[in-house]
C-alpha cells in the first residue's frame, strides 16, 4: 500500500479541472441561446458526458485505479446505454 503515496494529486490539477468544468458549463448554457433544433439536446448531452468523464477520471481518480475498475465503470455506462436503446426499440417502431 505504501506505493500509493505517489498517487497524491496536486492542488493545481484540481483547480485546472474545475476551470475546464466551469468553461464547459458556460458553453452548455450559452448554446441554449442559439436555436439548434434537435441538436440542442445532443450537444447538451455530449458536453455533460465530457464533464462526467472528467469528474470520474480526475476527481474520482479512476485514472490511477485498476484496470478492472476501469472496465467495470465503462461496462456500467455501456449496459445503461444498451438498456435505453433497447427500450426505444419498442417506442420508436410502434
Amino acid at each position: 500500500m505504501k506505493n500509493k503515496e505517489s498517487h497524491i494529486t496536486g492542488y493545481p490539477t484540481y483547480a485546472y479541472v474545475l476551470i475546464i468544468l466551469l468553461a464547459l458549463t458556460t458553453i452548455s448554457v450559452a448554446a441554449t441561446g442559439y436555436h439548434l433544433g434537435a441538436y440542442t439536446v445532443a450537444l447538451a448531452l455530449l458536453i455533460a458526458s465530457i464533464k462526467v468523464a472528467t469528474v470520474i477520471s480526475y476527481f474520482m481518480h479512476l485514472r490511477s485505479e485498476s484496470l478492472f475498475l476501469k472496465v467495470a465503470v465503462s461496462g456500467v455506462f455501456l449496459i445503461f446505454t444498451l438498456v435505453i436503446i433497447i427500450t426505444f426499440f419498442d417506442y420508436l417502431f410502434r
Partner: peptide, 21 residues
C-alpha cells in the same frame, strides 16, 4: 439475461421490431 426483459410483454402492444429482438 439482462436484455431479454421484453419477452414478458409480447401481448402488451410493444412494437413488432422490439418483440422480434
Amino acid at each position: 439475461g439482462y436484455f431479454v426483459w421484453g419477452h414478458h410483454m409480447f401481448t402488451s402492444g410493444t412494437s413488432y421490431f422490439s418483440r422480434l429482438f
